[in-house]
């Protein structure tokens, strides 16, 4: 069994504040993912004890909601919107092209750990379709041939 993880004090405080609030689990998981970019197993175990929630329930919740990840994503997570507007305007092709360029499938991480690709639901910029989001930066009205440029830009970051 893995030993108890050392959590950042901020995170610990957050968990303490939420500990006794009913329905806290999802809010706490959001905060954990903000810290680690995914939900590490040992943190889930820690939460199980701290919040007095069975680990199975935590995993049930984590695997139910697409937002939560059990695997660490790349340093830069490229999110391609595949909402209806973006899909109609070629969001699917952007995903395929990214897979080609990076050599990993959706949900995978490049071997250097730099990039991961994710298809996401409508990010609410339908006027800019098709859209990709990298580290919070939105790229709208995106064309396939712009992708290498975007990858290069984040490679050095």
């Amino acid at each position: 069994m893995s030993s108890a993880p050392k959590l950042a004090p901020d995170l610990q405080n957050f968990i303490k504040t939420w500990k006794d609030k009913p329905g806290n689990l999802i809010m706490v998981l959001h905060r954990v993912q903000q810290e680690y970019k995914y939900i590490p197993r040992e943190v889930a175990l820690y939460l199980s004890k701290e919040l007095n929630v069975p680990l199975a329930k935590i995993y049930g919740v984590v695997t139910f909601y697409h937002f939560f990840k059990l695997k660490k994503p790349g340093r830069h997570n490229i999110q391609v919107c595949i909402g209806t507007a973006c899909y109609l305007k070629g969001g699917g092709d952007l995903l395929l092209e990214l897979e080609n360029l990076l050599g990993v499938g959706v949900g995978g991480v490049t071997s250097d750990g730099l990039f991961s690709i994710e298809g996401v639901r409508c990010v609410g910029c339908c006027g800019l379709a098709p859209v990709a989001v990298v580290d919070g930066e939105v790229f709208g009205k995106l064309k396939k041939d712009k992708l290498p440029e975007i990858i290069a830009k984040f490679k050095d970051k």
């Binding site: 329905g23 999802i26 809010m27 998981l29 959001h30 139910f64 909601y65 697409h66 937002f67 939560f68 639901r121």
Partner: peptide, 8 residues
């Protein structure tokens, strides 16, 4: 506020 987590 309570946040959703990507479940339609």
């Amino acid at each position: 506020l309570r946040l959703g987590a990507g479940a339609f």
